[in-house]
Design a binder for these strands. Structure first.
Lengths: 126, 126
DNA sequence: CGGTATCCAAGCGGATACTG
DNA sequence: CAGTATCCGCTTGGATACCG
């Protein structure tokens, strides 16, 4: 298991926020769980590009941070469900805000990137 | 110089957002520049824990992403100023939202972390 | 089905010294 | 003052195989 060797500076609010939703798949996981996708296998299907291992790592962190609750049913085959806590629910508006900003500005952003690309090509042709 | 070898999946809005403000110091830089701290040396003073190199890397990316504009005055000693673009300004509400969430929930979060810590200590003493 | 171990590649950032 | 080169370490996440 990994062990962090550099202490995080938890001074400002931003660092806390990023500590909690900073993982690559954490916002997606929170969003999915809030929409009723609770079981690990379902979550895995929803995000095929994320390996089981990473999803588990992120879910573990989310659990440790109090964002979600993990319920283990003692049955065979195994059954596990994740639920958003009240604390985790307070993240939803923020996540939606971030997603909305990205969607709203995706066009402008991609256009700008293309401009830069063509500019670079011009530079290369000098 | 670094060269990314894995293409980013820019499918959802979230990935765009994180692409732009995902750097360790980017939100701080955007915030500082919006508050009138424009020169590299000033920005460096404002964030002493970030090295010149990393600040430059992030500023370069922010420039390439169209978030800030870089103005180079052809004088000696060198003078450079960064300005927030209109596009970059649209990020401010989001950044404030993230900072506010972090500040608002810092207490709850730290309390929760301490509980986990003490629980772990109990486990260790078994 | 759910979780973990192991190995490994890439990302990301810090430290320092150096150039204009 | 502004920027870059080099080196190096920690972190993050992907691939696979395996256990309960």
């Amino acid at each position: 298991m990994y062990e962090k060797k550099i202490p995080k500076d938890l001074g400002c609010g931003m660092s806390i926020t990023l500590e909690i939703i900073g993982g690559k798949w954490k916002p997606c996981l929170i969003d999915s769980i809030s929409k009723g996708i609770r079981r690990p296998s379902e979550l895995h299907k929803s995000h095929p590009d994320a390996s089981k291992r990473v999803l588990n790592l992120h879910l573990k962190e989310l659990t440790e941070h109090g964002v979600v609750t993990k319920i283990i049913y003692p049955v065979l085959p195994s059954k596990v469900e994740y639920f958003l806590t009240d604390f985790g629910a307070t993240l939803l508006p923020l996540i939606l805000h971030m997603e909305k900003w990205g969607s709203d500005h995706m066009a402008v952003f991609n256009e700008f990137q293309q401009k830069k690309l063509s500019l670079r090509n011009e530079e290369y042709s000098l």
